[in-house]
Amino acid sequence: MAMVSLTINGKKITVPDDLTILEAANRHGIAIPNLCKHPQLTPFGGCRLCVVEIKGVPRPVASCTTPVNEGMEITTVTEQLEQHRKFVLELILSDHPNDCMTCESTGSCQLQELAYTYGVKGQEYAGERRTYAKKDGNPFIERDLEKCILCGRCVKVCQEIQGVEAIDFGYRGFKSKITTAYEDDLNCEFCGQCVHVCPTGALTGKLWKRKGRYEGVKETDTVCPYCGTGCNITVHSKNNEIIRITSRPWTWNEGFLCVKGRFGYPFVSSPDRLTKPLIKRKSGEFEETTWTAALEYTASWFRKIREEHGPDALGGLSSARCTNEENYLFQKFMRAGIGTNNVDHCARL
């Protein structure tokens, strides 16, 4: 691959020639504000925030779509560019509810962060806002289209990554909106990739609602308990309750999850959870008991069978859902503790 040399803000850099200016800048630690570009998705070029000046080019160009070229002299920050960016932010916010106080995405909203950075309140060009009466009735994803800034990331991720194409741009001009066919309720794979890439509060999890944002929220990086892919997830919890699950963009799964990984956690707080050891009485009914009693009862049965019929009259079934440590210890228990190789798990099922 050919390399090209160029300067960004006076800094000379050499990069592969198939990069865009934005990618080249990011690779060398130069941040350029943007809303519609997502690293995993093809560029869109709609938000116009990533504009830069190139020496010899009369108008500012979008760095997310412009490829690098040998000898380019690029400036990412000038007073003029900052004015332009403020202008665009003013316009975006003039068509945005700006109800950050109650918005699910406060604190994780890229639009909010840019508005904060640029000190833009959205008052300067106040005017009509898009309003929508209809709410999407699907059980997973809250779609608040009034907060949508039409960056197109959701459309792209649904097409390019998920291959579902449940949504697309509809209408045009100021009436543009992201829509399903015939504006029906969303009926897709509910992977929530769109939620993951949404830079605002337009797309959130219905499960998340009013559960907590960042104050007092603990984030734990762990692994999804569903299929064998082993996606990296981040569990957000507050007061010992899971309030949402996300995945960080720099994980090997690139922040992408499926419906189960993203929205499949509520079983944890199901009222059906077992909370005490149970022993079955003669009547056939279960009765709650203490750990000591349950363990002693179990151990006594194991001892009895082993003594009467030998260790191979006992068997153990371990679980592909338990950890390596637990599985290791389980078979060690069966082999060394009980004395049998009758131990298996459900790999084949």
């Binding site: 697309d168 509809g170 066919a181 504006e183």
Partner: peptide
């Protein structure tokens, strides 16, 4: 995708 048809039609 039906959404594509709808997007174009609108």
């Amino acid at each position: 995708a039906a959404s594509k048809f709808y997007g174009v039609a609108t």
